[in-house]
Amino acid sequence: MILRIVNDWLSGSNKLERLWLLAKIEFKLRYYENKLGLFWALLKPIMDVGIYYIVFKIILSTDIPAFASYLFIGLILWNFFMESTSGTIQILNTKKYLYEYSNMNKLEIYTSTLLSNSIGFFFNLIMFLVFYNVFETESIGMSSYNFWIIPLFVNLFILSLGMSLILSCIYIIAKDITQIWQVFTSLLFFLSPIFYKLSVFKEALPSFDYANPIAGIIINARYVMMGNTAPNYELMIWDFGYAIFLLFGGLILLNKLGAKAAEKL
């Protein structure tokens, strides 16, 4: 029944085409405008991995196996979250031209931007797979569990969309949300097991893997991509719960505050 409604809605209009068109243009704007082009999208995670590798493996000599891959998968998920939240706080301002002269649904603006970030994530994921399976000496190879990354990414997408809606709507009434979010994300970054060993993280911050949705997604992504194991289902359900809750909050804010964007910004 729900599927049929969605199908009717999509086939009768140009919505899907429009989302894809906007996403493609957004992606092009981000990467093709500078000299290095798409290369940046590929270079960025490698440089990030390099930095943390030097600090934690070479200087602090951590004993996590396959540490570069461990960092890699954590960082690409984290970067997607950052690009989709910090990167979209001012979206109602920068994309004003889309809704200022027509009755376009604002939610499409968010979805297309996140879709554009998803293209970037997809490239990064392929790089990770190549890295892990070709260059990583401690790799245990691919398995069918790898497919679990799809629902995990869907979870991350919903979570980021919800956060993006909340932040960008608050931006309308409080411009310094940008700075506040910056501080909050650096805290969140250090409270996520991106470069810590999972057991150390769990010991120091018990049950925090359940409180921080990003942590849960990263932990599960490592299980399915590097551990040849199924994800922790309980953790996954929690994280989907958080994501859907935030998305609802975001949609309410969009209706209350976001609707006024044209006159306030």
Binding site: L21, L22, I25, L29, K95, L98, Y101
Partner: peptide, 26 residues
């Protein structure tokens, strides 16, 4: 005086974006 156009996009892209927002298929 203006219609919804992005300064950052080319005329071609703006035509496609506006057309799409107005409900046309590619």
């Amino acid at each position: 005086l203006g219609v919804g156009m992005s300064q950052e996009l080319t005329a071609r892209e703006n035509i496609y974006v506006s057309g799409s927002v107005l409900g046309l298929k590619i």
